[in-house]
């Protein structure tokens, strides 16, 4: 695993430890995607984070918020020390579900109730179309989140409104497999009129190639990237044990898991 993947994961572990909460399996499965978007794809920077024509990143799978903070720390939006000192306190602006009401720039949406981020993202993309804005909207969804009905409502809407400036990323870590048999995302989304690609969600080069190819492909079709990922990727313990779906590491576990990440 490359150095930045390790750094981001260690930030997430530390913040989870500090706030005594977190959904680390989910965080580890999408960190490489979020980083690739912010570092290599999106028209976004700390300086332009409030400009109207910036690209948007919406985290619809809110339980992976601890994947967003590390990326924004490494991009210079926040500092690890600042979040570390604040997270876990009662009046903290930072928590394991993003809360945009507490920020000016950097955090674009609230997360928590699943099935909200995708409709919201489609609204921004629709507005960009009306305005003729070049802004692209990236929205990270969980595979399990696609059990929510609003996700499919938005798929109909996005396709009907020809939102080719909307890119839906499914962090397909097979969470849904434990609930229902979802069948093929590719076939489903293609049937809804999406331009669908697949990628290894832990291979930044591959992700970059796919996102670059989709960006600006103004063919009227909304974009979807099915990112094949592994829950807890970067820590064998976390991948193996589903208790880490929702668990924060204590001091001892923090050391163990950090060591695993370093060795991965």
């Amino acid at each position: 695993m490359n150095q930045i993947s390790k750094t981001l994961r260690k930030h997430a572990l530390y913040l989870s430890h500090k706030c005594r909460d977190g959904n680390l399996q989910s965080v580890f499965s999408c960190l490489d995607i979020v980083w690739t978007l912010y570092d290599r794809i999106m028209a976004w920077s700390v300086e332009t984070a409030q400009e109207e024509d910036r690209d948007f990143f919406i985290i619809s799978k809110g339980q992976a918020t601890l994947a967003l903070y590390p990326v924004l720390i490494e991009k210079g939006m926040f500092s690890l020390e600042e979040i570390g000192a604040e997270i876990g306190s009662f009046d903290s602006r930072y928590c394991i579900q993003t809360d945009l009401t507490k920020f000016q720039g950097g955090i674009e949406n609230n997360a928590g109730s699943l099935g909200h981020g995708l409709p919201f993202a489609a609204g921004i993309a629709n507005a960009n179309k009306i305005k003729g804005s070049p802004s692209q909207v990236y929205v990270l969804c969980g595979d399990g989140e696609f059990c929510e009905g609003t996700m499919w409502e938005t798929c109909i809407f996005a396709s009907a409104k020809k939102l080719d400036n909307l890119c839906v990323i499914i962090d397909d870590n097979d969470s849904v497999g434990a609930m229902v048999d979802m069948g093929s995302f590719v076939r489903k989304l293609e049937a809804f009129g999406f331009d669908v690609s697949e990628a290894d969600g832990h291979n930044m080069e591959e992700l970059e190639t796919v996102f670059r190819a989709l960006r600006g492909r103004a063919d009227g079709r909304p974009k979807a990237v099915i990112a094949h990922t592994v829950r807890g990727y970067g820590s064998p313990t976390m991948t193996e044990h589903d208790i880490w779906f929702h668990k924060a590491p204590n001091a001892e576990e923090l050391e163990l898991l950090t060591g695993e990440v370093d060795a991965f």
């Binding site: 109207e52 674009e108 099935g115 909200h116 995708l118 409709p119 919201f120 993202a121 489609a122 609204g123 921004i124 993309a125 629709n126 507005a127 960009n128 009306i130 305005k131 804005s133 009905g149 609003t150 409502e153 938005t154 109909i156 809407f157 009907a160 409104k161």
Partner: peptide, 26 residues
């Protein structure tokens, strides 16, 4: 047609889309 949108029979998505439109200045 650029100010009026028929979202289809999907009220929940319509509310989310409205929130997104507001964020983008509408």
């Amino acid at each position: 047609p650029d100010r009026v949108f028929n979202c289809g029979i999907q009220e929940a998505n319509m509310v989310g889309v409205a929130a997104g439109l507001f964020l983008a200045g509408y």
